[in-house]
Design a binder for these strands. Structure first.
Lengths: 336, 336
DNA sequence: GAGGGCTGTCGAAGCGCTTCGACAATCTCT
DNA sequence: AGAGATTGTCGAAGCGCTTCGACAGCCCTC
């Protein structure tokens, strides 16, 4: 392993000079800089991460805590994770992947050991048990998702409340009066995942304001579950003509079942999805949808975190405005 | 931040003793051990990762390189990544998430800086450009996937060749004579991803042995692409009664299209999928399938790597035997 | 009961880097 | 021309840990 000292010797300067060339924290003559850079290249030098972390108490690593469960939105999670990793690299950081398995202890361990300089938490619950730990730690953190109490925290998320409202408005404008919401799996609501509840808030609030009927039903993914859920909905509210779906794995089953029952989309019923772009365009009917901007969420989270690590910027809640894209699955409500 | 020295003082022993309590590398009297452990707990001590890495030249981190692209098998990737992370933690390692973005340089950087003790590479191509670097590095590595030349490498993968053979056999046994293979996106073959080609090998080899017709067509996911592909296949080989699908995002479109054309599954045509269990059971027809054992692959990869890090075990190719699960999508070929 | 082997503990060296203060050399004013 | 500021470089200290050799005390054994 090549060390700083060897580079220094090779370039005929002192170790500290090499260090300053690397960090740019003191000015170095062009001549010296070039000599050093040349030595670095020729020797194939890579600074030792451990030594660097020890001396500077900065690891240049950020921890990303992903949920262990895979009961929802896996592609979204993956996309976020990848966006986090690439953005982090662009800022000179590496990413440590933590699963929820360890639970809150992971926060303690990572903060305590100086393994990471900061962390990004995904899949935040309204009253997340990791938050107290996060608050008492001095390590900066950014949440992807919104807990109930955001005091002292930096959060990044799609504005799910506005998303809900937007979906309702879209259907209302087209004359739909009875709307059904196919939600996430019941478990998602039971653990009070912020985004699901906030979407519901937005949906309900807007529906009330506009005087629409709104029926919300959680739904596991898959055909069987969707069949049961749909039957119940149509039984309870036969006049339903608008659907809002917030569950990737219910989208296709819903479309298939509607087709099977002879309900044409969008002639008889309209469907609006809250899902990644890709799902919307690959579905059997191209879906009018509000996209979940996974990449942007990941990127923003890292940028917020890096800002905090650099001592810039404080606690902030960054909500991304939803955008509804009109596709083939929604249209005017049928005449009654 | 609490340090080793503070723990030592609190417990009334020397720093080295605390270190030995932690590592277990020398025997310590029960009495002393307990005092030290108590101090550690009371002070909330966490060893500093950087210092540890520097002194021991072991970071207790393994790097996981995931592909940047998301043109295939995202849920599988995610599942593997999570399995890697959890298994690694069980062995005392953390996981560093690298994307393919950096390319081969990432290997150099991680190995050179001592950031990670070893690495796991996913999405291996037959002639992967990271392999030469890997071979010249002294850091142990494990591949998930199989390159063309496995000399000096440890690899873990599903036996895709056997998987292909198994699918053909299954259909042959049920009397199907003409089989079509819906493959991954063309790009996957273009970059010579090992698993796709090996599956094809297995399919073709077995089909030849059994005297069956086999038509392979790469296919982008989604309805439109699938529609085009299917039309071409049926045009070229109208007698096709068996389908093998190796592309998650083509599964549902295929089923929908067949239904739409009045071809019943499994009465008129049989479908066998190579996909994660979840996709197979959630599809609109429960699919006879060979599961991709993502969790096991992740777990095995970590275990192989840890073994190498411990100086146990050498280079090995671990192939997981495929298992075909019979579900509702395959049956006897219709009488001609 | 002297010699040899264990056990349990300690002190010190050092891992490879960052960073602070010092200082010589050079430049910029009046 | 001399004081003062600026620039570029160096040496040394120290980050918190692991690990090696040393050694005191103990238990056996012949």
């Amino acid at each position: 392993m090549v060390t700083l000292a060897e580079v220094a010797q090779h370039a005929g300067v002192s170790a500290s000079t090499v260090s300053y060339v690397l960090s740019g924290k003191r000015s170095i003559s062009v001549n010296t800089r070039q000599r050093v850079e040349r030595s670095i290249r020729e020797l194939g030098y890579h600074p030792n991460a451990g030594a660097r972390a020890l001396a500077s108490s900065r690891s240049n690593i950020i921890a990303l805590m992903v949920p262990l469960r895979t009961d929802m939105y896996v592609p979204v999670m993956m996309e976020i994770a990848i966006a986090v990793a690439t953005t982090a690299r662009a800022h000179g950081y590496d990413v440590l992947l933590l699963t929820g398995e360890e639970g809150p202890d992971a926060v303690r361990r990572v903060a305590g050991s100086g393994l990471a300089d900061g962390m990004i938490l995904m899949d935040v619950e309204l009253d997340d048990e990791r938050l107290p730990l996060l608050r008492e730690t001095d390590r900066p953190a950014v949440l992807i998702g919104l807990p109930a109490d955001t005091a002292g925290l930096t959060c990044v998320d799609l504005d799910f409340k506005a998303t809900g409202a937007l979906c309702v408005e879209h259907l209302a404008q087209r004359g739909h009066r009875d709307i059904a919401v196919i939600g996430e799996a019941p478990a998602v609501y039971e653990r009070h995942t912020g985004f699901a509840e906030r979407t519901l808030d937005g949906l309900r609030g807007r529906a009330r304001e506009l005087g629409l009927g709104l029926l919300h039903r959680p739904c596991e993914g898959g055909y069987d579950a969707m069949a049961v859920t749909l039957a119940r909905i149509l039984d309870e509210r036969p006049g339903t003509t608008g659907f809002v779906v917030q569950n990737e794995s219910a989208v296709e089953p819903l479309l298939a079942l509607l087709r099977q029952q002879g309900r044409a989309v969008p002639e008889d019923v309209s469907v609006v999805a809250i899902c990644p772009e890709q799902v919307a365009v690959q579905a059997s009917v191209r879906l009018t949808s509000v996209a979940i901007p996974a990449q942007e969420m990941g990127r923003l989270a890292v940028e917020q975190l890096v800002a905090k690590l650099d001592g810039r910027g404080g606690d902030e809640v960054v909500l991304i405005a939803p955008e509804l894209t009109l596709r083939a699955s929604s249209g005017p409500a049928p005449a009654r």
